[in-house]
């Protein structure tokens, strides 16, 4: 069906497309789930809508309420769009070292932004949002890192969609941020395909982002359950950028930088399958398009220049 009552109703049902030129052999194939084809252009639309609808059902969210959310960008943009459609206000707590496009999109959708210091990364944004909530208890924090509706959006949506399109799936590879995608879709796929490998690709940023004052300020999302994962890779900016560019060059897909990190992990799994001589159907998530990252310099000049430009930025 291609007709919907409103933009929000068109969420999900995204295409799964083959990557014939990046796949290493006819037996070891890569498939990309194009989550940039969601209403605001990222996979976060799924979690945002589910979290808002869950809060409405629970009576936590009344007409005219103001939402508060720590976010490095995409979740904020998704929440801002849904909130505006439904008459809520939104305040985002966002690290200052995120791309200008994200700020402009948030402001265009009517959100207010409170910036947290670059040196504290997302951890600091989470801490600031929690402090703001204590001072302003009338605000409603959906809290993507611990909200089961975030993972459920993928258990109900992303996971079943992928399995329906790729019943022979052997691997699911996605990005690790709030962990919602991997926990939700990963759990669903494990239940249906017990032998599946669920692989996390975690972006490794420049040092500034890890500038905590002590280890105990570290953060693991409440949603995270490592038993859902088979393994987890840390992918640095060089590899993420290289793969992001390969995705455009070989398959015509213009994706954000975190998708490059996911492709890097997916190709590592593909190489293992090829070496072992086992067939594989590897589904990977394209989290968003590249548009919001043009100003970072990721797509211009040499890889070295792009990597230097990304230093200190939160690129996923």
């Amino acid at each position: 069906m291609a007709r919907f009552d409103s933009l929000v109703d068109s969420l999900g049902g995204t295409p799964l497309v083959g990557l014939p030129r990046l796949s290493p052999s006819p037996e070891v194939r890569l498939w990309a789930k194009l989550e940039d084809r969601n209403p605001t252009g990222s996979i976060k639309d799924r979690a945002a809508l589910y979290m808002i609808e869950a809060a409405e059902k629970e009576g936590r969210l009344q007409p005219g309420a103001t939402l508060l959310e720590p976010t490095s960008g995409n979740t904020g943009i998704s929440l801002a769009m849904v909130a505006r459609q439904r008459g809520y206000q939104l305040i985002c707590v966002m690290p200052e070292n995120t791309s200008i496009e994200r700020r402009q999109l948030l402001e265009m959708y009517g959100a207010r932004i409170v910036f947290s210091p670059a040196a504290g990364g997302s951890n600091q944004a989470v801490a600031m949002a929690k402090a703001l909530l204590t001072q302003n208890p009338e605000l409603v924090m959906l809290y993507q890192y611990g909200n089961e509706a975030n993972a459920r959006a993928h258990y109900d949506g992303t996971g079943p969609e992928i399995l329906a399109d790729l019943p022979t799936i052997t691997h699911f590879v996605a990005g690790l941020g709030t962990t919602g995608t991997l926990m939700g879709a990963g759990r669903y796929l494990r239940e249906k395909v017990p032998s599946i490998q669920v692989v996390a690709a975690e972006p490794r940023y420049g040092e500034l982002v890890y500038g905590l004052r002590n280890i105990d300020e570290g953060f693991v999302p409440e949603l995270y359950d490592e038993t859902v994962l088979t393994t987890r890779f840390s992918v640095g900016p060089r590899e993420a950028l290289r793969r992001t560019r390969e995705l455009v060059e070989f398959e015509g897909i213009f994706a954000g930088i975190s998708t490059g990190a996911i492709l890097h992990a997916a190709l590592a799994m593909a190489d293992k399958a090829l070496a072992a001589g086992t067939p594989a159907d590897i589904a990977l998530v394209v989290c968003d398009g590249g548009w919001k990252y043009l100003s970072t310099g990721a797509y211009a000049g040499t890889l070295e220049e792009a990597e230097a430009a990304l230093e200190g930025q939160l690129w996923a």
């Binding site: 976060k44 720590p70 976010t71 490095s72 995409n74 979740t75 990364g121 997302s122 951890n123 944004a125 989470v126 993507q144 890192y145 990005g175 690790l176 941020g177 709030t178 919602g180 975690e202 972006p203 490794r204 940023y205 982002v209 890890y210 905590l212 280890i215 300020e217 570290g218 953060f219 693991v220 999302p221 840390s234 996923a316």
Partner: peptide
């Protein structure tokens, strides 16, 4: 070998 503190994404 890389050692990193755990940080939030999203």
């Amino acid at each position: 070998v890389t050692i990193l503190p755990a940080v939030a994404g999203g």
